[in-house]
Amino acid sequence: MDRFPVIMGEVLFDCFGDDSVLGGAPFNVAWHLQGFGLNPRFVSRVGADALGAEARARMQDWGLDTRWLAIDPEHPTGRVSVHLTDGQPSYDILPAQAYDYILPPDALGGCGDSLFYHGSLVARSEVSRATLLGLRAAFAGRVFVDVNLRDPWWSMVTLWPLVVGAAWLKLNEDEAIRLVEAGDAARLARERQAGRVVLTRGAQGADVYDGREHLHHVTPPTVVDLVDAVGAGDAFSAVVILGLIEDWAWPVLLRRATAFAARVCGWRGALSDDRTIYREILSDWRGTASS
């Protein structure tokens, strides 16, 4: 696959009391991929407001291409109220945000043999869901679906069409239990024709399954100084995508993904604009090419 993954979905601000932190699962994934040296095409929409201007400016400063970030004159940039309990986040997601009205983008260019990533929250609205399904059709066999079950913004009716036929499906243990009896990831892969299901288990690590069996498990490093777990799953997804593009073996891919997710738990919110973090990690990976 080429190095220009297409990422579609929400960009929003996580609001911790009076503090607003840029985020949104697809945006976080795009941010990390840019940090790791890829050039993702991020397809989304922000309002014609101060938060939208901030999101665009942050993207430009980080080197993310803003050509596919549309401006909505009628709807506000996405906002979410985040509440932390023992470091674990819960979310109050506002309705009718700019990312609910994503329209088909102009030609994406240079990514015809790459990977298409999306989450499930963006499918809550008819407009963005129609755009999403249209884009997916151009990436048959190369679709990565990141399940994020945010009540009340999902249903089986809208979720299953996104899951069926995905090449890679990532979800956490709680989400798996809500979707299939006993959280049986191999059964989920088999019944929904997903190529691989990646199941995250927090401090217990991560696993990958196909439709027949469990393929691999990895135990993550210990998080020594936990700040919060906001964005840890997105950090994990970004490294999985990088590993798929770079053709890493699953044991290597999962080990690196869990290690980066653990590192993100040591800072506030989902993102860092410290480029040295990414350079150091890449240098470590090159020094241990098979681990």
Rank of each mutant, 00 (worst) to 15 (best):
A189P: 00
R124G: 01
V127W: 00
E173N: 14
D174W: 02
W154R: 06
L135P: 01
W160L: 14
R190N: 06
F139Y: 14
R136K: 08
G112Q: 13
W154V: 05
T131K: 01
D146M: 03
L188P: 04
V147P: 02
L108E: 02
G134L: 02
Q97Y: 03
L188T: 08
G165N: 12
A123D: 10
F139K: 03
F116Y: 12
A176S: 13
H118G: 09
A130I: 07
E126S: 14
A176P: 08
D106E: 15
V143I: 15
S155E: 09
Y99E: 07
W153F: 11
W154D: 04
V164D: 15
R192M: 11
A137M: 03
S125R: 01
P104H: 03
W160D: 12
P105A: 06
W168R: 04
E191N: 03
R192N: 08
G109V: 12
Q97M: 15
E175S: 10
R192D: 00
R178E: 12
A107G: 09
L132S: 02
I177R: 15
V180W: 01
S128D: 09
E175L: 11
Y99A: 11
W168G: 01
P161L: 03
R129H: 09
L103W: 00
M156R: 14
A182R: 14
A176G: 08
V147Q: 03
L115T: 08
F116N: 05
R142E: 05
L132Y: 02
A98F: 05
L135E: 04
G112W: 00
A185S: 11
P161Q: 06
E191W: 00
L162I: 13
E126R: 13
R136P: 01
V122K: 00
R142D: 02
L103Y: 01
I177C: 13
Q97K: 07
W168N: 00
L188D: 06
L188G: 03
V143F: 03
T131E: 02
L171V: 14
L121G: 00
